[in-house]
Design a protein around this nucleic acid. Structure first.
Lengths: 347, 347
DNA sequence: CCTGTTGCCTAAAACGTTTCAGTCAACGGC
DNA sequence: GCCGTTGACTGAAACGTTTTAGGCAACAGG
């Protein structure tokens, strides 16, 4: 720790240089206008501070003021661009509000998430944004309880199954599925199948749910063998998609819970001689950058806005205190490309 | 700030509950073995701490110990998956070393980066990882100077043009280009052109440089019109690629500085009736996830390792103090897919 | 000369830890 | 009974700020 040798400049140093007390330094630099101070003194202090390169020690400030101006963000990984962009949104909003971000990464491990949360609370963050992820969501309740006990405001992102415990912000998966199904229906499709996400996260379930609701709303029947790749199926999207096409009444279109599954299944479709969109229309989900390269119609989410809203909600909890849990759903929009076209066959 | 009302439990509270002094609480909880303390007292204190849910206030600890156990990460954005994965690598390494991460985002704006750096230094982070980005790299030196003045250890990531000022960690772009060119040469290609990144970042320059060096090493001539999309050209990759194909001696293969440029140019190639790899072999760079969906041969980087190495270097600076600047280049590897095949024509 | 008033600044406490010198009791040896 | 030693714990300072009550000089009014 060589910084010890070369101490950073403190308020005392500025005070000595300006020929005043530390109290005065603080008063001047924080521009306490209700205290009378001569312009001459102000200038002297400011000049000394500038000359010495004085940066008030935030640690000491935090201790005395009882607030750290820092919020914690606990996420499962930054490898997912969806999560990373949420973090970006949180950071931007926090910076605008003058709050810093302490980042912790659970690596999808509940125990690690526990430990990290402990560290964040030890650091006395003023609030926590908890981004749910596979692996940690099932035991999330335990950590929310801990947050409640320590009276630390929090917001959950990307999971609404714990909505009764506090605020949550999610992407509007139901709306997304409705847009996808409605788009296909407007093209004349009646036999629309669903290729699920193969996981049991809150949004995977919401997308399946949204698919069913949209079909019901449009009075379209859903055959039993039109849903594939749910939590109980293997994670082979191509095989799942091919199974869908062997249904008793084969679908003319498929809405997927994830672009990635479609991208992976595309070569198999091509090999089987099934043209897209000629023989089969496809709608993906998430609008990853490759969706445009593959010309996939897809539902675009807005992770930056999710992050911004999550921070906004957290901030209002920090300043206004608790009240009835809010559930914020961020709208999505459909990006139409050439993987969808009018139905080639009407039932 | 409602947390004020419901204060968190302090060492004093534990001390009172256990019938000892605060000093004892600290001694027990920090397991100071060189001080003699009876087992009975230890147990009483530990029990009281557990019962009250005592979490030592890190802010006070930091103040007294003069170290915050926190490093700052200053990056241009989390929207880039490359940067996000670097951050992930840093976080993982930092967590393993027991250090927290304060995240700041410059949004590609030098002024904002300045401000953010000020905040990090105010927070008394023990070191800073500075991830360079377009927009901020040109004025990076100013901030490095500031870091040097405050005697805060730092490491620069993704830029080696400031290597004289301190440590830097970069992906080995020269090696990557060498792998790409050598791969094509081994397939019999002699006329290999370069589609640049269209930016003037350190790695774009290094990739161009690596291309030239590799061609020279293999004794392959580089025509003047075989380099496109450098900093002075417009950012239309498809047009750049088509220009390459109109060269006096048209190339049979192209190595790009970025997968994305190839992905965007692909439709144009298809429209022009140029088959890949039949008429033209392509090698991309970065191995984005879409590279596999588009079957692009590409150079894969390892951002997590870049982050880990950056943190490792920073940590050794923090503990061992300064010495000769290190320049760490993280190896890359070539992922061969079907966008490259044996040359159709030998010169 | 006394009493206020005003203007400008400062002393000192406080925040919640850690650390170390020191206290105090008990005990043993002589 | 005295001295030293050991074991077990504690008092108080320290970290670098902010904040508030109050000090002090100058000056005015009576």
């Amino acid at each position: 720790m060589r910084n010890q040798g070369q101490r950073l400049v403190r308020g005392t140093d500025v005070a000595r240089a300006a020929g005043v007390s530390v109290a005065t330094v603080s008063l001047v630099l924080n521009d306490r206008r209700n205290v009378v101070l001569s312009e001459r003194t102000r200038d002297r202090v400011r000049e000394a501070a500038r000359r010495l390169g004085y940066l008030p020690n935030r640690v000491a400030q935090s201790l005395i003021q009882g607030r750290t101006r820092t919020v914690g963000v606990l996420l499962p990984s930054l490898a997912s661009s969806f999560v990373a962009r949420i973090a970006d949104g949180i950071e931007t909003a926090a910076a605008a509000a003058g709050l810093g971000l302490l980042l912790a990464n659970s690596r999808h491990d509940p125990e690690s998430e526990d430990r990290q949360l402990g560290i964040l609370l030890g650091q006395r963050v003023e609030g926590v944004v908890l981004v749910a992820g596979e692996g940690t969501v099932s035991t999330l309740g335990k950590r929310l309880e801990r947050l409640q006990q320590s009276a630390t405001p929090f917001v959950v992102v990307d999971d609404e199954t714990h909505g009764h415990r506090g605020d949550c912000v999610v992407s509007d998966d139901r709306q997304g599925m409705d847009l996808a199904v409605a788009h296909l229906a407007s093209l004349g499709h009646r036999r629309i199948a669903h290729l699920g996400a193969g996981s049991i996260t809150s949004s995977a379930l919401a997308r399946l749910d949204g698919y069913r609701a949209a079909m019901a709303r449009l009075r379209l029947r859903v055959d039993r063998d039109w849903i594939e790749g749910d939590a109980f199926r293997s994670a082979d999207p191509a095989a799942s998609l091919m199974r869908l096409l062997r249904a008793r009444r084969p679908p003319t279109a498929v809405v997927a819970a994830n672009d990635r599954h479609l991208a992976e299944a595309l070569p198999t479709l091509r090999a089987a001689g099934i043209g897209v969109p000629g023989d089969l229309s496809l709608v993906g989900y998430a609008n990853y950058d490759f969706a445009s390269y593959l010309d996939l119609t897809s539902v675009e989410q807005d992770p930056e806005v999710i992050g911004a809203k999550a921070f906004g909600q957290l901030l209002s909890r920090i300043t206004d205190g608790p009240s009835k849990p809010a559930r914020i759903r961020v709208p999505v929009r459909l990006i139409v490309r050439s993987s969808t076209q009018a139905a080639f066959f009407r039932s």
